[in-house]
Design a protein around this nucleic acid. Structure first.
Lengths: 201, 201
DNA sequence: AGAAACCCATGACAGATGTCATGCCCGCTA
DNA sequence: TAGCGGGCATGACATCTGTCATGGGTTTCT
């Protein structure tokens, strides 16, 4: 019997997934959590075989939870389910020791299968997401370019970005211009969105 | 027996919700759909008592589906479930004839209860969302301002917004300028984010 | 040591953008 | 019917941005 910890802030979905997984004879949901911190705390006590964690949660991000779990409970395999599959998330997740990565568009059969796969030491990444991540490629942005683009995400004017990054406005414009070129966008706002979509920031 | 149509693009969640609802003796999920168009087409054939529809779907938005349903199938009560409860959505949904509006954070008990409530002619809106909608206040934006701001959300340059809205660039700039003033932002990108955060678009 | 890449900055210029004034047309309402 | 608010447009102006050239400093690799 595979003992599962389920973490998702959406009560309805968490309960529903628990119901689905429990239909399988060899799977048992032994704990549920609604936040990242709760998931971590619960996992320490319950020591599940597999942790199924939602990517976006109120406090701790799913990847952070996965990272902590892989250090503290190496015997527990972590897998991530998410509604919004960004390539960047996938990369970060794999780097954090996540064994499975699925969008919520998959069927419950797949979910159950992947739980078994990761429990027996395998890995599974949704093919569509994997393809996206590969096609997105590595970030061509330099660290500072990424910093500045991130500050540009909220739509702040250049002067504010410069202040927040402790740079001169001219330098900020140079970085942004470079980033705009690398993303193929026509202005920094588009560039920021594109970079985020590709997981570069 | 209440016959339910379930529409959600996330297969896992849809299946899970179906499983949960089917546990109730008086509820029966008679059809499922993964897109708005599919939901509409299916509803015409199946004629369910209650339609439970996800707000964000690939093609047709949940509210649009609700609107179409309330016209074509007045006997079918529509309710919306969503992950991201924005005040603006709630308002639009109610205007479209939706009878129930829930975030996915609710428990399955509540979901089942609300299904029964709307089926018997009642209405139900999640209290937290209702409070948010009230506190957000009414949008000071004129319809066109809202349209244009929405197109500005993705960071497109003004010429593209003008083309997409079939307006002259000058008019677009006027609307945006007005919207920037009303939101207290310093440029249209900030204005667009602010407006969205307050549920005005 | 030299090349290459990155970090930071300045200056100049063109084009994009925000702001304001002005005008016309329409529908609603007092 | 007159006034008001909104939709749509134009023109002019100041400012903001994006782009490019240039240069000096640092670190890393060969």
């Amino acid at each position: 019997m595979i003992r599962i910890l389920l973490a998702d802030d959406e009560h309805l979905i968490r309960g529903a997934m628990a119901a689905l997984l429990s239909l399988e004879d060899d799977l048992s949901v032994v704990a549920q959590a609604a936040t990242g911190a709760e998931a971590l705390a619960t996992a320490r006590v319950v020591r599940p075989d597999v942790a199924v964690i939602d990517l976006q949660m109120p406090d701790l991000d799913g990847v952070s939870v996965a990272q902590a779990l892989s250090l503290e409970l190496p015997s527990c395999s972590t897998m991530i389910v998410t509604s919004h599959g960004r390539p960047g998330h996938l990369k970060r997740a794999l780097a954090a020791g996540v064994r499975g990565f699925l969008p919520k568009t998959v069927s419950s059969d797949v979910l159950a299968t992947v739980v078994r796969t990761v429990h027996s030491g395998g890995r599974y990444v949704d093919p569509a997401l994997a393809a996206e991540a590969i096609s997105a490629g590595d970030s061509p942005l330099t660290p500072r370019e990424a910093d500045v683009l991130e500050l540009a995400l909220e739509g702040a004017p250049i002067d504010e970005i410069a202040r927040r990054a402790s740079l001169s406005p001219g330098t900020v414009r140079n970085y942004l211009s470079s980033a705009v070129g690398k993303t193929g966008a026509s202005n920094r706002h588009e560039a920021a969105r594109a970079a985020r979509a590709r997981g570069w920031i």
